[in-house]
Amino acid sequence: MKLKLQQSKFNLMGIDLGTAFTGFSVSYNLQQVLVYDLHYSPCYSPHDSTLYKRIIQIINKEKIGGILIGKPSFEKGYIEEFTKGLESNLVAEGLKTFITQVGEDYTTKQAKKISKTNNKFLHDGMAAMLILQSFLNEL
């Protein structure tokens, strides 16, 4: 899997799913990682159909080949629900984007320290960026 990813020329999306806001990040050609779409909010539920539609728009626009969803060790099941819902929506759209969950704890707290602002949109986007960057550092 590692060798295959390193040779690929597709983009990855990182998602920091919260109960109030969702942060996105995108890596281009598995290198540059950027906070994406700071103004998407709010996500109140893993069943929010507008969130799935927004993710599908980003997949199509940015040519996303894989999605990494941050999963804290202490989460209560909403990540699993969201992942299944997203998979169903991708299949319905005929998209073959792979999805995986990656361990992450306290990325939003880390993002708050890094940004030194009170901008919640930025914190969640930066948390998604940290999730994605952490994964890429493991390659």
Results as ranks from 00 to 15, higher is better:
Lys109Ala: 15
Glu93Gly: 04
Ser41Pro: 02
Leu34His: 04
Gln110Met: 15
Ser115Gly: 10
Tyr106Asn: 15
Asn89Asp: 11
Tyr40Lys: 00
Leu68His: 01
Lys76Val: 11
Asn119Glu: 14
Ile67His: 01
Lys109Arg: 15
Leu95Ser: 14
Ser45Val: 04
Glu104Pro: 01
His39Ala: 09
Lys113Trp: 07
Ile55Pro: 05
Glu81Val: 14
Gln32Tyr: 03
Lys63Thr: 04
Gly66Trp: 04
Tyr78His: 09
Lys76Arg: 11
Val35Cys: 12
Ser41Glu: 06
Ile64Tyr: 03
Gly65Phe: 06
Pro46Gly: 06
Glu93Cys: 10
Thr97Ala: 12
Asn119Phe: 08
Gln31Leu: 08
Gln110Glu: 15
Ser49Trp: 02
Lys113Asp: 14
Glu75Ser: 13
Ala92Ser: 13
Asn118Lys: 14
Leu51Cys: 08
Asp48Trp: 00
Val33Asn: 04
Val35Gln: 10
Gln32Gly: 00
Ile114Thr: 13
Gln32Ile: 07
Tyr36Met: 07
Pro42Gln: 01
Asn119Ala: 11
Lys84Gln: 14
Glu93Trp: 05
Leu86Cys: 10
Thr117His: 12
Leu38Phe: 05
Glu81Thr: 12
Arg54Lys: 12
Asn60Met: 06
Leu30Met: 07
Leu95Ala: 12
Leu38Asp: 03
Ile69Val: 11
Ile99Trp: 01
Glu93Asn: 14
Pro42Asn: 04
Gly70Pro: 07
Leu30Asp: 03
Val91His: 10
Val35Leu: 03
Asn119Ile: 10
Asn119Cys: 12
Gln110Pro: 00
Gln57His: 06
Asn89Ile: 00
Tyr40His: 07
Thr100Ala: 15
Cys43Gln: 09
Gly66Tyr: 08
Ile56Gly: 00
Pro42Tyr: 03
Leu34Lys: 08
Tyr44Val: 03
His47Gln: 07
Glu104Phe: 13
Leu51Ser: 04
Thr100Tyr: 13
Tyr52Gly: 07
Asp37Thr: 02
Tyr106Phe: 13
Glu104Gln: 15
Ile99Thr: 03
Asp48Tyr: 02
Lys113Ile: 13
Leu30Ala: 08
Glu87Val: 09
Ser41Leu: 05
Ala92Asp: 12
Ser88Thr: 12
